[in-house]
Amino acid sequence: MPSSFVPPRQVKIGDAAAFSGSTPRAIRHYHEIGLLPEPERGGDGRRRYGYEDMIRLLWIRKMADAGIALGDIRDAFAISMASAGADSGDEIVDILERLEEALTARETESRRQRAAVRRMRAEGSRMGLLSDFVTERLESLPEGSLRQADLDSLLVTERIFGPLGAAIQATRFVALTTHPALREDSDRVDGAEEALDDSVAVDDPRVAQVAVERHAFESALQAVIEESGLGKHDDALFDDWDDLGSGGREADSMSVLEAAGKMPYDFSPARLRCRELAEELAAQDSPTT
């Protein structure tokens, strides 16, 4: 028996929202971000939605329920629109493939973040803020043996020099942590350097004296690193880093000069001069080529 009911060819936003399982507010937002084209308006000035609009709304709702970000959905539809003349079924497959790739990458990042949070919870420190490449270098140390200042220094170093630079610096902390006498010498020299504050002139005799002490300590530290075999571990780091390829490098890394211009420091002119003199002493010890 024929029905006397004839479905409307276009519906208002409230009906469109009810049918698609959305809300008028959400649909307006889709228009604002370019996810859903603005439809025709009726004589009363209100939006009217046709069959194709409803199909788009159903797709949006299904993909959003799957956890796909609205921006990703919009990009997928934009790619679909750009593929003029292609079979619609193939376009949908391409869209879903790209979205699956994006979700896989997001899941990988989510796993990395969860692992970092677990590390921070387990160790009660900022270890989890460092990359795996750096923390693996510190696995030999007893839990909680690193100082907070050591971890802060590694965090800054990783930002400037990347995970490889921070992993090499971690070798210093491994040596200091496992050699208490060396750590005492480090604290003594650090304290002498910190005393070279803004009240000390760069030509003060104490500057050169502390530079000699710094050079002597660095030489002793390097000797311990080589004798203990930690230096060989550093050589292996370069091989591991090469094996990682571009995947081990941070996408948001910056140059050393750029980082130096943006990172505040507490070194006075006298302290900076002290480090320069210590480096000159180290260069004198280096064999000439």
Rank of each mutant, 00 (worst) to 15 (best):
residue 188 R to E: 11
residue 9 R to E: 11
residue 11 V to D: 12
residue 119 R to C: 15
residue 88 S to M: 15
residue 177 T to E: 05
residue 139 E to D: 10
residue 233 H to T: 05
residue 282 A to F: 09
residue 278 A to Q: 01
residue 73 I to D: 03
residue 12 K to N: 15
residue 96 L to S: 08
residue 59 W to Y: 04
residue 4 S to I: 15
residue 63 M to T: 09
residue 26 A to E: 02
residue 154 L to N: 07
residue 167 A to M: 11
residue 248 G to P: 01
residue 179 H to Y: 06
residue 209 Q to A: 15
residue 121 R to G: 14
residue 239 D to Y: 06
residue 287 P to R: 06
residue 31 H to M: 04
residue 251 A to M: 12
residue 132 D to Q: 07
residue 261 G to L: 00
residue 115 A to R: 13
residue 91 E to F: 00
residue 267 F to N: 13
residue 15 D to T: 12
residue 284 Q to I: 11
residue 269 P to K: 15
residue 185 D to L: 10
residue 258 E to C: 12
residue 29 H to F: 10
residue 52 E to S: 07
residue 141 L to I: 04
residue 205 P to D: 06
residue 241 W to C: 09
residue 110 S to M: 11
residue 14 G to I: 02
residue 27 I to V: 02
residue 248 G to V: 01
residue 46 R to A: 14
residue 103 L to N: 14
residue 284 Q to N: 06
residue 74 R to W: 10
residue 79 I to D: 15
residue 175 A to L: 01
residue 164 L to Q: 05
residue 190 D to T: 13
residue 20 S to Y: 07
residue 256 V to T: 09
residue 253 S to D: 03
residue 132 D to S: 13
residue 237 L to T: 03
residue 74 R to Y: 09
residue 17 A to C: 02
residue 135 T to W: 03
residue 230 L to M: 03
residue 208 A to F: 01
residue 116 A to S: 10
residue 75 D to V: 02
residue 41 R to T: 09
residue 141 L to M: 02
residue 245 G to T: 08
residue 20 S to V: 01
residue 239 D to H: 12
residue 203 D to Q: 00
residue 146 L to M: 09
residue 228 S to M: 06
residue 217 F to R: 09
residue 267 F to I: 05
residue 141 L to Q: 00
residue 39 P to N: 01
residue 110 S to W: 02
residue 162 G to N: 10
residue 53 D to P: 02
residue 36 L to Y: 01
residue 79 I to F: 14
residue 132 D to V: 03
residue 227 E to L: 11
residue 271 R to S: 11
residue 27 I to Q: 03
residue 277 L to E: 11
residue 196 L to S: 08
residue 203 D to Y: 02
residue 101 E to N: 04
residue 98 R to P: 06
residue 104 T to L: 15
residue 145 S to A: 13
residue 25 R to V: 07
residue 59 W to F: 01
residue 37 P to I: 07
residue 34 G to S: 01
residue 168 I to S: 10
residue 239 D to A: 14
residue 226 E to I: 10
residue 96 L to C: 07
residue 216 A to G: 07
residue 288 T to S: 15
residue 144 G to W: 07
residue 224 V to D: 04
residue 122 A to V: 09
residue 117 V to E: 10
residue 90 D to V: 05
residue 200 V to C: 11
residue 102 A to C: 05
residue 265 Y to D: 15
residue 282 A to W: 05
residue 215 H to P: 05
residue 221 L to M: 02
residue 198 D to Q: 11
residue 271 R to C: 06
residue 282 A to Q: 13
residue 58 L to Y: 05
residue 274 C to Q: 13
